[in-house]
């Protein structure tokens, strides 16, 4: 997979419509996978925290939908006095956008749905990839562990 592919997609999303301040991609446990911002130096925020809260809200709402048997959750829109937060499901993750208050909601919805479909595929591929440790490295690690255990036994 191309490095920084998620950041590139998020940056393209931010550039596609005025009023988008920040885009964050998180997994369902709240871990931030990637993020992009239009004015990062002007709006210093805790991206990890925002992403974790957005993911928690989304997963919570999803659970409510399951309990009420009204199907899968597609999007959560939180409207504030000075901005809006959009969250949409994308495969095993959640895409979160922070925007200005007077943004075109219809356009943001459309852009998010398109981007979520693209990100969903990549994210599933990214999360299903297994990291294999080379055999030599494994042997070295085992030897180090054995040496450490011997040292402990001698004590």
């Amino acid at each position: 997979m191309e490095p920084n592919v998620f950041e590139k997609i998020l940056t393209r999303l931010i550039k596609s419509e005025s009023g988008i301040r920040r885009a964050i991609l998180v997994d369902r446990t709240g871990l931030t996978i990637a993020h992009a911002s239009k004015f990062s130096s002007y709006y210093p925020i805790d991206v990890e925290g925002i992403g974790a809260i957005a993911s928690a809200i989304f997963v919570g709402s999803e659970e409510q939908g399951k309990n009420l048997d009204i199907g899968d959750l597609q999007m959560v829109i939180s409207e504030f006095e000075n901005g809006k937060i959009f969250a949409i499901s994308c495969g095993q993750g959640v895409l979160c956008l922070i925007t200005d208050p007077d943004v075109n909601i219809g356009m943001i919805r459309l852009l998010m749905k398109r981007t979520a479909a693209e990100l969903g595929k990549l994210l599933d591929e990214f999360l299903s990839a297994t990291v294999s440790i080379p055999v030599e490295e494994k042997k070295e690690e085992e030897e180090e562990l054995k040496a450490a255990l011997d040292a402990l036994e001698q004590l």
Partner: peptide, 13 residues
Amino acid sequence: TEKISAFAASLLG
């Protein structure tokens, strides 16, 4: 409908 709504409102804006 979703596409026309989004683009028409954006264009007007």
